[in-house]
Amino acid sequence: MKPAPFEYRRADTREEALSLLAEHGEDAEILAGGQSLMPLLAMRLARPAMVIDINRIGGLAGVTEIEDGISVGALTRHREVARDALVARDAPVLAKAVPHIAHHGIRNRGTIGGALSLGDPAAEFPACAVAAGARLVLASAAGTRRIAAADYYLAPFETARGPEDLLVAAEFPADGRGAAVVEAAPRAGDYAIVGLVALARPSGARLRDVELVYFAAGERPNPAPAAAAILAAADDARAALAEAAEAARREVETIATPSASAAVRRHLVGALLGRAVAALFEGARP
């Protein structure tokens, strides 16, 4: 499988990338880690006239402190996200997600900006960003805007990013809650059939401030607020699991794909909730 011909441009500065996108955005794809783009090119599912390589742009990689938390640069590779001290402090859910993302060599190259901007419904980071209330920072020649992750994902591979926009960072408000990322996949590193990002503060038998966002179940990150509310209201979260799982099965959209029927996904939506709750309590142990 070989990609169709395209013109290659390497942007060495952010300004250069934005001006290329302003001129060619409609016909261009952005090359960051390339771990999703390159297969799309090879299979000719994407056929851009131009590929804009942003890997050499300075200042787009790494994690910095901002007023209410951290800003994770778009070119930060998955392996760095997993090892970063600021991520561990303010957005530990990201580090929990990394072992689930593809394979060792792919985590060496893949970037958080690519994973967030692509809008793959089976991807872990978009669900983390929605659960954690992250803001995605989109830059274009016209200026910079921020959009809540919850408003960014419109449909599979369709996002609020315009053709002239470059996702430059994701801002995560400091979140001291415990985090769990669980998923059902045929094999370690495969695409999830269903996955769940859960944030909560375990306290005795209770879970407070619960946030649940499913991924791979439906067409985009799928919050489960009713199930979260049932868990958060219970004196014993584990005793409320059956009721919460039932609520999640009702409120989470489940799709049928060649790898799993909607019924299998509905079953997994409930089953994964139990695993996530167990992991949250496990993580809270001294």
Binding site: M1, Y8, G105, I106, R109
Partner: peptide
């Protein structure tokens, strides 16, 4: 496989393993 699944084309790129089918020669 030429699309990043099988890992047979793994090389070390700037100090880290990567699939060489998911990198362009220009890179």
């Amino acid at each position: 496989c030429e699309h990043g699944v099988c890992g047979t084309c793994t090389v070390v790129f700037d100090g880290r393993t990567a699939r060489s089918c998911l990198l362009l020669a220009v890179q």
